[in-house]
Amino acid sequence: MENINKIITSYLDLFFKNHKFASIPKFILLKRRRNFLRKIFSSRAEIRYINNKVIITLYVLNRERNLLKKKYISSTRLIKEYLFKRFFFFYKKKLSKIHRTFNLLSKKYIFLPSKMQKKLYIKSKIESLNKLKVFKTFYIEKIWTKLIDYYLTFHFTRLRKNSLLYYLNIFKFNKLNMLWVLTAILNKLNVLRNKKIEYNIINLKYVTNHPDFFTNVLALRLKKQKMKGFREIAKILNRTYIPNVNTIQERTFIPSTFKNKLKNLNLVSYLQNKKVNEVFNTFEKGSSNDIYNSIKYKNLGGIKVEIKGRLTKRYRADRSIYLLRWKGGLKNIDSSFQRKSAIFLRGNVKSNTAYSITASKRRIGAFAVKGWIAGK
């Protein structure tokens, strides 16, 4: 199982062999690239064996794709702005001189009946205007070629780099383009007994949606010497959104006869301007959101982060630091307060919680980050 997770993480960290192909100025080592926060984070693979195939479920947080998309949009906007700014600068500076010279030439030919006929005067004016038009278009083309050749090489290389990295990121999750490479590696190593592999990739939006994500992020950030543990945990906890729920109502036990009938415990709110028979009829019909409300653990109930290890500032591993912070609660409301039976998964693992641990090391020693999230 551990080998499969390592293969999947190394596959998601794939990059161009030649860094000059993607117009990257200097080569970055793979060891350093793995420590980047702008990459694809994946959870531990959940493998399910069937007779003829294997289903691998992966939860993915694609931070690289969102960042590259923003960079691509900003670089295209900058190119447009820079192009037009430079063009108008040359246009005002040079083409104004062209207009002056043509105005001086046109003033030489003055229409007088004794000296010049009216037809010849109009003909000379049209010829000068045509010359001005041709010269103007020629000079505008010259300005654009000069801008593209000399001034915008940096911007176009940057745009090419972002587009190539973005398409590489998309191809990693495409069955036709690159996902078959992962299946070939797994079948070559005979990790999954040469069975047909089916991938179930779930894209998550936030770091706090899975404990594997924020434990990996914290472990990468705490590798740096200037990072402080409490501050980094606070950043994770501030990003967690826990819905506002009436905890008193949620934790009070209601008998089964009145359960799922009342929105709150105040019967007065139902009896105002209504008859008793109408109230009981509404209880029997039920609401249209019964299916959605029957899904358990769809909302985040709480989060807990624990850090322990050699996280001191000094260059001596003589002291271990222990940090613990949480937000919300990890208790199962059904079993703890509503007197319902709860299923335990794999021994003592609760059905409403997900747990993860990530071990890492610094210059002065090793440390570990533990994470829990609970649903309700």
Rank of each mutant, 00 (worst) to 15 (best):
A342M: 09
L152H: 05
K20I: 11
K85A: 07
I7K: 03
Y91K: 14
I303L: 08
I321Q: 09
L12V: 10
K161F: 06
K136Q: 11
N200Y: 06
A45C: 04
T257N: 06
K53D: 07
K31E: 15
L179F: 04
G365N: 09
L152Y: 09
F90M: 15
D318W: 02
K70M: 13
S42M: 04
I73K: 15
D290I: 05
S128H: 13
L311N: 06
T208W: 10
T252K: 12
L168Y: 06
I7T: 11
R38V: 10
E64H: 08
N266R: 04
N299W: 02
L37N: 14
V54L: 02
H99G: 08
N266F: 01
P25E: 14
F111A: 08
L237T: 08
I333M: 03
L29T: 14
Y166R: 14
L192P: 02
F283P: 00
S320E: 13
T282H: 00
K108N: 14
I55C: 02
W372P: 01
G365P: 07
R363Q: 15
T252W: 01
K304Q: 06
K85T: 12
K224D: 12
I148M: 07
L182F: 06
G375M: 05
R362N: 15
L179I: 03
F230Q: 10
K69W: 07
F135R: 06
L262M: 09
R231Y: 09
I291K: 04
L147D: 03
I24R: 13
A366K: 15
R160N: 11
F111G: 06
N352S: 10
D149L: 10
W144L: 14
V369S: 03
R363D: 14
S341G: 04
F41N: 02
K259C: 04
I143H: 05
S320I: 14
K94Q: 13
T57S: 08
L204R: 13
K296T: 04
V268W: 04
L168C: 04
K370Q: 09
I126K: 15
G329Y: 10
T153S: 10
I50G: 03
I343D: 10
K123D: 08
S356F: 07
R314D: 12
R339V: 03
F111S: 13
N277G: 00
K188Y: 12
L179Q: 10
S106V: 07
F154L: 10
R158C: 05
K296Y: 01
L132I: 13
G371N: 03
S269K: 00
L179T: 04
T101A: 11
G347S: 08
F337A: 01
F89I: 11
A374P: 05
L265C: 06
L189D: 05
R33Y: 07
R314M: 06
S10N: 15
K92R: 15
L104F: 07
E64V: 10
A219T: 15
R38Q: 13
R325H: 08
K97M: 12
A366H: 11
I303R: 00
Y322P: 00
K304R: 05
P113K: 13
